[in-house]
Simulated scan of single mutants.
Amino acid sequence: MKSIYFKTDNDGLIGEIGAFCQEEGFQSIDLSREHIDPSDIKYGFIVADARFSNLFQKVKVPIAFVGDPDDYNTPHYILDENAKLIHIKSFIDSAMNGGVIANISSNCRLKKISYHYEIGNDIFSIDKIVYNLTKDFVYFFKISDLQKIRIGLSEMITNAIEHGNLEITGEEKFFATENDSYYDLLNQKLQDSKFKNRKVNIFVAISQKLLKITIKDKGKGFDTSKIKKEHTEEDLYKLHGRGILIASMYFDEINYNKKGNVVELIKKVT
């Protein structure tokens, strides 16, 4: 089970940790009551008052201090004494996804996002790209829901690069996968002057009510009328159309333009 270990005198922060654990299915463990050597903690996350930093010099898991300790040199996050549930979520989400160690201020609460990203055909770094695109979504979604959004978004960006910009057909992918030459096919396409400089443009708009992500590639598009309206469990194991199916499990709507090179993903914020 995922756990948050904490050692703090801040009753308000203890309450926020408890609320987070209840919402996300984590276990909360009070190090002031449990006799656990912090250096023995191998899995989970730690939140502690900065004045206790000497007790955590040998920890191997992500740690957030309430205040900035002067004598602690290992990378850490900083929460201030007014930290709320959202700041605990920001710490956990960032730590889970290899985010940059940073101060998390309780005076900063994101209410609305609207931005435009342009990415290259770096299909081998999709996970990092998706994290950078969605790291602020933690202000709007539970982490468990955010992880699902990332899975669906990853599939759709992969489609935009693979089938859109690189124009790899379903038949080509199936044949290359069956013959263990898929990465050779990818590298061939990535080096082709016709495809290598193409970009994928991603537009994001999110508020307290709705998330909308628009993905536009430079490919020829496809016949969107062939997208299946209903799916069986067997479809999850097929290479062709699997990405759209997975995304449809985690978004409320998936809408394509007529050409098939622009897709809009919509999810309600609940």
Rank of each mutant, 00 (worst) to 15 (best):
residue 251 F to N: 07
residue 237 Y to Q: 09
residue 260 G to W: 05
residue 246 I to A: 03
residue 251 F to E: 00
residue 262 V to F: 00
residue 257 N to F: 06
residue 237 Y to F: 15
residue 267 K to M: 01
residue 267 K to A: 07
residue 239 L to R: 00
residue 250 Y to N: 12
residue 256 Y to D: 13
residue 234 E to S: 11
residue 248 S to D: 09
residue 235 D to C: 09
residue 239 L to I: 14
residue 242 R to T: 10
residue 234 E to I: 08
residue 252 D to V: 15
residue 257 N to T: 11
residue 235 D to N: 14
residue 257 N to C: 13
residue 264 E to D: 12
residue 247 A to G: 06
residue 253 E to Q: 14
residue 257 N to I: 06
residue 249 M to Q: 04
residue 262 V to R: 00
residue 238 K to R: 14
residue 248 S to G: 10
residue 236 L to Q: 04
residue 251 F to K: 10
residue 250 Y to P: 04
residue 257 N to A: 12
residue 260 G to T: 10
residue 237 Y to M: 12
residue 261 N to P: 09
residue 246 I to K: 00
residue 256 Y to I: 13
residue 265 L to H: 04
residue 239 L to V: 09
residue 262 V to Q: 04
residue 255 N to K: 13
residue 247 A to T: 02
residue 256 Y to F: 15
residue 254 I to F: 08
residue 246 I to M: 05
residue 248 S to H: 00
residue 254 I to K: 12
residue 250 Y to L: 00
residue 241 G to K: 09
residue 248 S to W: 03
residue 261 N to F: 02
residue 258 K to P: 01
residue 257 N to S: 12
residue 245 L to N: 03
residue 260 G to E: 05
residue 252 D to P: 09
residue 253 E to I: 09
residue 234 E to D: 12
residue 241 G to Q: 07
residue 240 H to W: 13
residue 240 H to M: 13
residue 236 L to N: 08
residue 243 G to L: 07
residue 264 E to C: 07
residue 260 G to K: 03
residue 259 K to G: 06
residue 244 I to C: 02
residue 250 Y to W: 04
residue 247 A to P: 03
residue 266 I to C: 05
residue 236 L to E: 11
residue 249 M to L: 09
residue 244 I to E: 06
residue 250 Y to V: 14
residue 236 L to R: 08
residue 267 K to H: 10
residue 241 G to F: 06
residue 264 E to W: 03
residue 266 I to H: 11
residue 262 V to M: 05
residue 235 D to V: 10
residue 255 N to F: 08
residue 237 Y to W: 12
residue 267 K to W: 00
residue 264 E to F: 03
residue 266 I to T: 15
residue 241 G to P: 11
residue 238 K to L: 14
residue 239 L to G: 06
residue 250 Y to K: 01
residue 236 L to S: 07
residue 262 V to S: 04
residue 240 H to A: 11
residue 250 Y to E: 05
residue 267 K to Q: 00
residue 244 I to M: 04
residue 253 E to A: 15
residue 242 R to F: 02
residue 265 L to F: 05
residue 243 G to E: 04
residue 245 L to V: 09
residue 267 K to Y: 00
residue 239 L to F: 08
residue 243 G to P: 12
residue 260 G to C: 06
residue 251 F to P: 00
residue 265 L to D: 02
residue 239 L to H: 01
residue 252 D to F: 10
residue 246 I to P: 05
residue 239 L to K: 03
residue 242 R to A: 13
residue 265 L to V: 08
residue 234 E to F: 07
